[in-house]
Design a binder for these strands. Structure first.
Lengths: 190, 190
DNA sequence: GGGCGAAGTCAACCGTCGATGACTTATGCT
DNA sequence: AGCATAAGTCATCGACGGTTGACTTCGCCC
């Protein structure tokens, strides 16, 4: 009698999801094999299909998450960086789902659309709380800097950024956040 | 007698490369089939292998290119944005090779390494011409903003950024470039 | 104008991988 | 105990796609 203790369905489902998040986060959608995810959990590949239907279904479940941006109401211009940056680090370092989505978004229309939803559904509303005009533009510009940092630090691992302390990165980026969120819209000639 | 005019080898090779750049730029490495590239050129898939050996070989050839950053020597802090941003637009809008590389870099170690080379081999040296200290950090931070803009505008197509005029984008980003390149390194507590 | 080498085609192989469906085993209930 | 059901396995299918090698056709040069 081999020691094959049998789990509950929700437990297995959760374990598969967890393994999928990690794999997708590390290698993107196309490079991940269902067989690998199943092996991580110690389960037959058929189980993955059983619980998530298709590989796309698994990915969709793995890429589901919340940014949980802090409420910016009443935050002063100078505090913005210190309020936002810790959340930035948390999102990218603790939740592999976000990395998965970023990796997939460069290749898949569906993932790109999901990423867009984050902008319009979560970033823009959060930004709107401290901003008086052009919230979508400001949110998009801020988002572009954040996304660029994530790509550079967590995907490409550009040495100076990958090794930089959180505090130093925050210090460099804070003025940029303030600029995008609080400076008046620049005058464009022409 | 069918109209099957036969090209020279270099011409065919070049046509394949061109088609590959476009496909890779649009869909990334994994989603592109050699058969599609060959079909674009009106040629048998075997030709692609004949000229480039493997799919990786084709990609490597397609992702080869130069940033051709302008010489920043003597450029004043306020002019930096106006000197750099046109080059930014040129690189991303005219050369599909760069988009290919970006798309692939989120998924492939080899492509990521190639992207890193661009930072150390081309961005950092260019930046070093106008900077007095911490050139690698400054180059990486600047690069992160540029990369983020490219991802947002050309890959995700975040609406406000995708539609924004070059002039307006330049106006928004110029202060950020100046900050990263010319502001003193911020003081980090702790 | 005949033959040689380059340009190009064709068919097929072979590994990979997502998906399927029938089968087996454990668990919980009465 | 015994059975119904959920949990899990197993073998396999079928499509896809990179790669190969043998074959065919064009263009050129003597």
């Amino acid at each position: 009698m081999p020691e094959t203790r049998r789990r509950s369905a929700p437990a297995t489902r959760a374990a598969i999801l967890e393994a999928a998040r990690t794999r997708f986060g590390a290698h993107g959608f196309d490079r991940v094999r269902l067989r690998d995810v199943a092996a991580d959990v110690g389960v037959d590949p058929a189980m993955v299909i059983r619980y998530f239907g298709t590989k796309e279904g698994l990915f969709a479940a793995a890429a589901e998450f919340e940014l949980n941006l802090p409420d910016l109401t009443g935050v002063t211009a100078d505090e913005l960086g210190h309020v936002l940056m810790p959340r930035f680090f948390g999102v990218w370092e603790d939740d592999a789902g976000f990395l998965s989505l970023l990796r997939a978004a460069t290749t898949s229309e569906a993932a790109a659309a999901k990423m867009l939803e984050l902008f319009t559904g979560q970033v823009t509303p959060a930004v709107a709380a401290v901003v008086t005009d052009h919230a979508p533009e400001r949110a998009a510009l801020l988002g572009s800097q954040i996304l660029g940092l994530a790509v550079s630090r967590y995907v490409l691992k550009v040495p100076p950024l990958a090794h930089m302390s959180r505090a130093e990165l925050e210090a460099w980026v804070t003025p940029v956040i303030r600029h995008y969120l609080t400076d008046p819209r620049p005058v464009v000639s022409g």
